[in-house]
């Protein structure tokens, strides 16, 4: 066989995505993250047994893009909807895909309690420090001094409070098997993000506990920057405030699942009495 005459597919649309073109703005990183989720599910052979939950926000219509069963949830309630689905189909893979307003403002209670319960769901958290769909208002993750439509003089922590570091916060909860923050600003970081997202789905498959993957993302349109400038802004502003990294990984800590990790913690706290 002459290799020069044989063509081989080395890159294509993942089976986990439909043929529908993305509706996101140029330079928005939603498309990248959608792809990473779909590729992870495909590679793990989970796409056909997956049920996804999409939020209110720019990814509100993401049920058009993921090629699996999907539910559209009320604003902030995706973890509750995912909980209902997972409890009915414990063997299905269930993920929610949520932005910062959805997950960390209106849906904070649902987010915290799904994590505390150790729901076997995979939460993908898009943090771009702004409300995209409604046109650029202050988010719970908007940075101090960040100018938005509803913080026109810059976010003043004295009146608007401080941004939430969600991954750090959830990493303290016993129900969480994996809490990690990644960024999709460079090819290398995108590859790392892919590995992280895939690991989160593996943890769900292996029944380890709740997983959160925060993805530092851009919003060129509402940041008022072109895509290249937006990436730079992420690197210079978001990443220092929200350092990427693994904040909790019970497997790395030597446990099979959150129950084991929680029991060990209880024992440890008991000893110090």
């Amino acid at each position: 066989m002459n290799p020069s005459t044989t063509s081989r597919v080395i890159f294509q649309r993942p089976r986990g995505l439909t043929d529908a073109p993305f509706s996101y703005c140029p330079g928005c990183t939603h498309g990248i993250v959608h792809r990473l989720v779909a590729e992870s599910l495909d590679e793990l052979g989970l796409t056909d047994t997956t049920i996804g939950v999409v939020p209110v926000g720019c990814s509100v219509t993401a049920y058009n893009f993921f090629n699996c069963d999907m539910a559209q949830a009320a604003h902030g309630r995706a973890p509750a909807v995912a909980t209902g689905i997972k409890r009915v189909h414990p063997h299905a893979t269930v993920f929610s895909y949520q932005g910062d307003g959805d997950l960390a403002a209106i849906g904070t209670a649902e987010t915290v309690h799904a994590a505390a319960r150790g729901e076997r769901i995979t939460v993908i958290f898009i943090n771009n420090a702004i409300y995209g769909m409604t046109g650029g208002q202050m988010a719970p993750t908007s940075l101090p001094e960040q100018i938005t439509q509803t913080s026109p003089y810059g976010r003043d922590p004295q009146t608007a409070g401080y941004p939430l570091r969600v991954t750090e916060m959830l990493s303290t909860l016993d129900g969480v098997a994996l809490a990690q923050r990644v960024s999709v600003d460079t090819p290398r970081n995108i590859r790392a993000a892919k590995r992280a997202i895939k690991r989160a789905f593996e943890y769900q498959r292996d029944d380890r506990g709740y997983t959160l993957t925060e993805v530092l993302s851009t919003c060129p349109t509402n940041w008022g920057l072109n895509p290249t400038e937006a990436i730079a802004w992420l690197q210079e502003n978001l990443a220092p405030y929200y350092p990427p990294g693994v904040y909790r990984d019970i497997v790395a800590d030597g446990f099979q699942n959150v129950a084991e990790a929680a029991a060990a913690k209880r024992e440890r706290l008991g000893e110090t009495k």
């Binding site: 009320a74 309630r77 509750a80 909807v81 209670a109 915290v112 309690h113």
Partner: peptide, 17 residues
Amino acid sequence: AESEIAAINMIYGASAA
């Protein structure tokens, strides 16, 4: 659930399932 709001949305998920 952590609230009635969460409960009805769990219902939404479970019913959809």
